[in-house]
Design a protein around this nucleic acid. Structure first.
Length: 585
DNA sequence: TTAGGGTTAG
């Protein structure tokens, strides 16, 4: 256009700024800004507003502010755009300040303005401001607007005030699909995936049709519950029959759902069917391979992604490093961590260091793991310290374990997990007096204990088992099946690992306790309740126990079933006497 | 030209 001697107009620049936003390129945006000034169009109100918006969306609130400050005249769109930029970057105090300032300058806010302010207040730190703003909205009659009502619910949800969000939802005069989506997303974000699915059923029962965003949230809920049947059924009913288009975002949610529900095949099938893959879909597929123990396939995918000239982002490296750590690829992990810094110029985040700690912990290189923790440029969080402590337990390192546990208790004295792991570590080392002391301390400190449980779905109904479970209506048949399986597996070579039963009791008693672990009760129940040859899927809230792991390997062979366990950190596929983790976890 | 709900992570 320039070569042809045609001068760009205001409309040309508006379109070009849009293009900068869609490729999220701050550099191109700055270039456009320079051209606009060069053409003498810098004082145009619409262009200045569009520049503020572009800078906000391209990640530079400072440049947006600069343009805003330089403006000779500002309309309601200018103020709203600047407030919206603050909202996008978590600057809630600035957003409120701008909102007050615009009114002193005599500019009247409209519904878009108040929606932007509500967006800025949607974070836990902004709850107090949000509540005050809510009062302003009521005083000025904005709360009758249905979008404002929904944004208010979202604000309370994001601030962690679920009660306020729910009570507002109940009071809404008209609940549209966005209201329901806000509620469902809130349940997901706060770990209540069951409630999210329940809300969806209610929404359907009163005839509100789901849209694309509803479905994305539902797949997320099914993923976190590992509810394969429900997820598959939602997939089938909304995509095959109603022909909703499967774009990259939706496909990613689906491939993630199948992966988290233990079906690697379905996950890969969705990935293969994608016409266009973005970095998020590649990341998800690599993570799925990592979690299922196929680290090398994950790395292969990473190299294919680069062959296609797609730039990895920082999450790609988390995926790649976790592929290494789950498969014992220590040298590869060290290599990718270095190349990420050197060639890709990424500054590692706490999560990247977390992956490195995990890599060394799983490999039993506890000294290296501790070294990463000591030398990283962050104060290690509880999750990283817990990785080290769990690894000390796994490798019987009492001294280092003591250190890690003390650090953890400093961070959160009420957390029961470090006490339990230490207690197991002492028990495995035969230090029964220390086990007893710890137990007294736990009672005195009144710590929160998280007990282990295993979940299995039969005909879409959830069955939860705990160790020595006595609640299940079919408990008699389940314990009889466990006894039968114990005899069969022992004949086939399973040797109970009495070192993993951490009570100071007689051997025979220990074996009995081992047999009542929640994993074994869940598998026994699944075997007597499902058709032969079908795959059994179990979800465990903690990591799978070593004895249950060797039991399940033998069992998968003698009963001719594939058993998939999702534990707190990965998947185990048991088939024909082997596990996909190759006994490395 | 500004706007309410959503996908990947140790």
């Amino acid at each position: 256009m320039l070569e042809d001697g045609l001068a760009p107009t205001k409309v040309t620049f508006l379109n070009l700024l849009d293009a900068c936003i869609s490729i999220s390129s701050l550099e191109h945006g700055k270039l456009m800004h320079a051209c606009i000034s060069g053409c003498g169009l810098a004082s145009d109100l619409a262009l200045a507003n569009a520049l503020i918006n572009m800078y906000g969306k391209c990640g530079s609130p400072e440049h947006a502010r600069f343009v805003f400050e330089k403006m000779l005249e500002r309309d309601v769109v200018s103020w709203t755009s600047m407030i919206s930029v603050c909202a996008q970057h978590g600057l809630h105090k600035e957003a409120i300040k701008l909102f007050e300032e615009m009114q002193t300058k005599g500019v009247k806010p409209n519904r878009v303005t108040v929606l932007s302010v509500l967006g800025a207040c949607a974070s836990p730190a902004a709850l107090a401001q949000g509540k005050l703003f809510h009062q302003y909205l009521v005083r000025n009659g904005f709360n009758y607007d249905s979008a404002v009502g929904n944004a208010l619910i979202n604000m309370y949800a994001k601030c962690g005030s679920l009660e306020d969000a729910c009570s507002l939802f109940k009071k809404l005069a008209k609940r549209d699909v966005v209201s329901w989506n806000t509620l469902i997303a809130m349940y997901n974000q706060h770990g209540h995936a069951d409630a999210a699915l329940e809300a969806f059923r209610k929404m359907q029962s009163i005839g509100v049709l789901p849209d694309k965003i509803t479905l994305l949230s539902l797949f997320e809920a099914c993923a976190s519950l590992a509810a394969l049947e429900e997820g598959t059924s939602i997939h089938a009913s909304f995509f095959d029959k109603q022909q909703l288009k499967l774009d990259s975002t939706m496909a990613t949610a689906l491939l993630n759902m199948y992966g988290k529900c233990g079906s690697l095949e379905d996950s890969r099938c969705i990935f293969n069917s994608l016409a266009e893959r973005d970095v998020v879909s590649w990341n998800s597929m690599i993570v799925t391979y990592a979690q299922h123990g196929y680290g090398l396939l994950g790395l292969q995918l990473f190299s294919m992604m680069q062959d296609g000239y797609l730039e990895p982002d920082n999450i790609t490296f988390i995926a790649v490093l976790s592929a290494c750590s789950h498969s014992g690829l220590v040298q590869e992990g060290i290599h990718y961590f270095a190349s990420m810094k050197m060639y890709h110029k990424f500054i590692p985040t706490m999560r990247h260091y977390g992956c490195m700690v995990d890599l060394f912990c799983r490999a039993g290189e506890l000294g290296e793991a501790e070294c990463v923790i000591t030398n990283m440029p962050f104060e290690p969080d509880a999750a990283i310290r817990m990785m080290l402590l769990s690894a000390c337990r796994l490798h019987g390192d009492v001294e280092r374990g003591n250190r890690a546990a003390l650090n953890l208790l400093e961070l959160d004295p009420k957390n029961g997990a470090p006490y339990l792991v230490m207690s197991n570590l002492y028990a495995a080392a035969g230090l029964w007096d220390k086990v007893a002391k710890l137990s007294e301390l736990m009672i005195a400190e009144n710590v929160d204990r998280q007990s282990g449980c295993s979940i299995v779905y039969v005909k879409n109904k959830k069955h939860v088992f705990v160790v020595r479970d006595s609640f299940h209506p079919q408990k008699k048949a389940i314990y009889a099946e466990v006894e039968r399986l114990s005899r069969l597996t022992k004949q086939a070579g399973y040797v109970p690992d009495l070192n993993l039963e951490l009570h100071n009791t007689e051997e025979e008693q220990k074996e009995k306790l081992l047999l009542s672990h929640s994993e074994k009760l869940a598998i026994a129940f699944a075997l007597i309740s499902t058709p032969s040859k079908t795959t059994i899927r179990i979800i465990k809230n903690l990591r799978v126990c070593g004895d249950c792991h060797s039991f399940l390997k033998v069992l998968s062979k003698i009963v001719g079933r594939e058993v998939v366990i999702r534990d707190a950190s990965r998947f185990h596929h048991f088939k024909d006497g082997l596990c996909s983790c190759g006994d490395y976890w």
